[in-house]
Amino acid sequence: MFIINCPYCGARDQTEFSCHGEAHIARPEETEKLTDEQWGDYIFFRQNPKGLHYERWVHSHGCRRWFNALRNTVTDEIFATYKVGEARPVLPEQNAGEAPS
C-alpha cells in the first residue's frame, strides 16, 4: 500500500486507484498495413522493467480521471505523476540504467 499523488485530487491511498499498465503506447497509424508481428507487438508485448516504469493509472474511486505515473517497480517509489498528454518526466539519475527506453 502506498500513497499516489493524483494530478487532479492530490495525495490519496493507492486502493482508490487502479493501474492499467505501460503508458505512452501509441496506436499504430495505417493499421491496415500492419503485419501480424506488428499487431502482436502492439497488443501483447509490454515493457516489464525491474526498475522505473512509466504507467497508466486511473483514480477509480475518486475523480475517475486517467493519468500517468513514473514508479519504481522494486521499491514502489513514485517519482512523478502527470496528466495524460503531458511530456514524460525525465528519469531520476539513480536506476536510470534500468528504465525503459
Binding site: M1, F2, Q14, T15, S18, C19, G21, N48, K50, H53, E55, R71, T73, V74, T75, D76
Partner: peptide
Amino acid sequence: DAYNSYSQRGSFD
C-alpha cells in the same frame, strides 16, 4: 496485486 511489481511483498489491501 493489480500493478507491475518486483517487490516480493504485496499490498496490505
